[in-house]
Write a protein that binds this DNA or RNA. Structure first.
Lengths: 219, 219
DNA sequence: CTACATGCCATAACGCTGCTATGTTTAGCG
DNA sequence: CGCTAAACATAGCAGCGTTATGGCATGTAG
């Protein structure tokens, strides 16, 4: 497990950084406690690398948080645009929940600690996906004219995060996710969509064939 | 876990325990980092007290988590029953959010760490308040007959927790709470309530004069 | 080609954390 | 009164994140 890099000569900067983040994500997935020494153990790099690249463990957690939002954004990008924008908005919410529950530990890191206002842009970037989807719904005449896309995006995010958080942290069992279509359908219908049409769109968007959830990057 | 009965003669047992919990809650409110030595500093008791009463710091965090649910339950008890059950259900949700944002740090403790399955009953107890309120809504004929009170309670909890969590952890500003009536109204309307009547009930329940939020217990 | 300057990394140490081992005190009871 | 057991204080331990220091590589000017 010692040698993971093949080219010994390395410009040093970005390689070690991504290696540490990748390893931290792996340890998170394996539910191993992430400590400074256990993180660098086996990688050949020393504890100081964490300080040169992340300025300490707090910086590493923040980088890990941003990595979570980056992966979520990449996941969102794989969601195709169909002719039914309400379905697409639902698909985005379903992708959000799928991402949160496929990587529950990473998801917890994204929201556990107090957000340092450094990674708020990352959160906003992912929220922007929902905003655009909501805007397309409105442009298609599915929602009332007075519906603000940002508001609807926030409301959708609230529903998704509420479900994901309650399930990921433990209080509710995974079956709880079945309430997703009900909640989203209620929200979209209240926004002006036709009830029957909304139900059909949500149902299709919710059970959309999920694309592969990981980018093919890791070693 | 030897002592569970009260009359075994307990000279100093509960006093130190509640003192430590109270102090921990105070430090949490003051945003001071809670460490074993800083917790007992100034109290006159030693570090060992944490182990005799809570079996370590993990036990103290768990007790603090239960304390959060207990206070939330006490807060729910202060919500009076009116003639409008939908309004009451909304009031409960508003009380939930008020509790979460009046004590954001305590709220974070309640959901941050993985729930140890020891304090799940505490969460269920507070959820039960919502279940009963939902049942009264249905008994009053406001919701459809096929609406399961537990499901609606979970859905209401999801909305409340989604808002509370996103605001308490930082991603969204406090103004976001304004989406509460919209989300609850959408949910209740989708459950069968008359739209106009629902809007009125939710509006009244949301802006219900909030009772004092703390039980008069602390020293 | 040499000499300096810069940044990355490894080693060792510091202060703090939660925790445990040991001795002492106190309450309840035959 | 003497015994048992629980609660306490003290001291010490391994582990944590962090920092200070020195070696080594690279990039650039003379």
């Amino acid at each position: 497990m010692a040698c993971s890099v093949q080219l010994v000569a390395r410009p040093k900067d970005p390689a070690v950084r991504t290696l540490l983040i990748e390893r931290a994500a792996a340890m998170l997935r394996a539910r191993e406690p992430i400590t400074l020494r256990s993180l660098v153990a086996g990688t050949g790099v020393s504890t100081m690398a964490v300080y040169t690249h992340f300025d300490g463990m707090d910086g590493l957690w923040q980088a890990l948080r941003q990595e979570g939002f980056t992966r979520l954004g990449a996941r969102f990008t794989t969601v195709p645009e169909s002719a039914d924008p309400v379905r697409d908005l639902t698909t985005l919410c379903a992708a959000y929940l799928d991402h949160a529950l496929t990587h529950p530990d990473l998801y917890r890191v994204m929201f556990d600690a107090s957000v340092d206002l450094e990674d708020l842009p990352a959160a906003d970037a992912t929220l922007e996906h929902l905003v655009q989807a909501a805007r397309r719904c409105q442009d298609a005449g599915r929602f009332r004219a007075d519906v603000v896309p940002l508001d609807l995006a926030i409301q959708s995010w609230t529903v998704g995060h509420g479900l994901a958080s309650l399930v990921a942290t433990g209080p509710l069992p995974p079956e709880t996710l079945g309430h997703g279509p009900v909640l989203l359908g209620a929200l979209f219908t209240a926004s002006g969509d036709d009830p029957d049409r909304c139900r059909a769109s949500v149902e299709r968007g919710w059970h959309h064939p999920a694309a592969d959830d990981e980018r093919p990057h890791p070693a």
